Amino acid sequence: MIITSLITEYNPFHNGHIHHIEASRRMTGADVVIAVMSGNFTQRGEIAVTDKFTRAEAAVKHVDLVVELPVFNAVSFADDFALGGIHIAELLGSTNIVFGSESGDIQDLERVYTQLKDTDIQHEMNELMKEGYSYPRAVNKAIGGEVFKGSNNTLGLSYIKAIDSLNSQIKPLTIQRLGNQYSDEHLSESRFSSATSLRKALVENRLEEAVRYMPELLARNILANTPLSNEKIFDTLKVIIDRSDHAELREIYMMTEGLEYRIKSKIRYHNSYETFINDVKTKRYTRTRLNRLMISILLNIKAEKMKNYTPTDAVRVLAMNKTGQKYLKSLPDSLEIITNVNSKNRNFIQREIAATDIYNVFAKSDRNDFNTPVFISD
Rank of each mutant, 00 (worst) to 15 (best):
L335T: 09
R367T: 13
M27R: 03
L259C: 02
D120Y: 03
R199L: 13
R199M: 08
F13C: 05
R199S: 10
Q176S: 05
E110K: 13
S197F: 08
K344Y: 04
S76D: 15
M129Y: 06
N300Q: 14
I252Q: 05
A48L: 00
E124R: 14
P136S: 08
S168V: 10
I338H: 01
S296V: 00
M320D: 03
K307I: 01
M306Q: 12
M294F: 10
E110G: 09
Q122G: 07
N291Y: 00
K264V: 09
L128K: 13
E248V: 09
I121V: 14
K171C: 10
S296E: 04
I34W: 04
Y159K: 12
D108A: 14
K329Y: 05
A82S: 15
M27T: 03
I295S: 12
Y135F: 15
I240M: 07
V49W: 10
V66E: 14
L237Y: 05
N152F: 06
L128F: 13
I353H: 01
V317N: 11
E22Q: 14
V341F: 00
I241D: 04
K326W: 06
A48M: 00
E352Q: 07
Q176G: 09
E304D: 08
Q107P: 00
V67W: 05
L228V: 08
I163H: 04
E251F: 01
R287I: 11
G45H: 02
I263P: 08
G16E: 03
T288S: 15
I7Y: 00
R177L: 04
D242N: 14
R137W: 03
S229N: 12
M27K: 13
R243W: 07
M294Y: 02
D242L: 11
D333A: 06
N153W: 03
F276I: 11
I7V: 14
A219K: 03
S197Y: 07
S229T: 12
V203Y: 14
P227E: 07
M294V: 02
R316D: 01
G93K: 00
F362H: 12
K307S: 07
F234A: 09
N360W: 03
I301M: 13
L92W: 01
Y10L: 06
S365N: 07
Q350E: 15
L83A: 14
A142E: 02
E204T: 13
E46L: 08
N15C: 06
M125K: 05
I376N: 05
Q325D: 13
Y133K: 01
P70G: 02
G104C: 08
D235G: 07
F192V: 15
R137E: 15
H123F: 13
I267C: 12
L223W: 08
L155V: 11
L249H: 02
Y113K: 12
Q325I: 00
D333Q: 10
T50N: 04
L69W: 04
A142I: 04
A48D: 02
T174G: 12
T196L: 13
T310V: 12
K322C: 08
K307F: 06
K305L: 10
E127T: 15
Q181A: 15
I267F: 10
Y359G: 12
S188E: 11
I143W: 05
E257Y: 10
L290G: 04
S296F: 09
R26F: 07
V239D: 03
D313K: 12
N11E: 02
L249P: 05
M37L: 09
L91W: 11
L187F: 04
T310Q: 14
I295K: 08
E127L: 15
N11M: 08
R137K: 15
R250Y: 05
S296H: 14
R206N: 14
R316S: 13
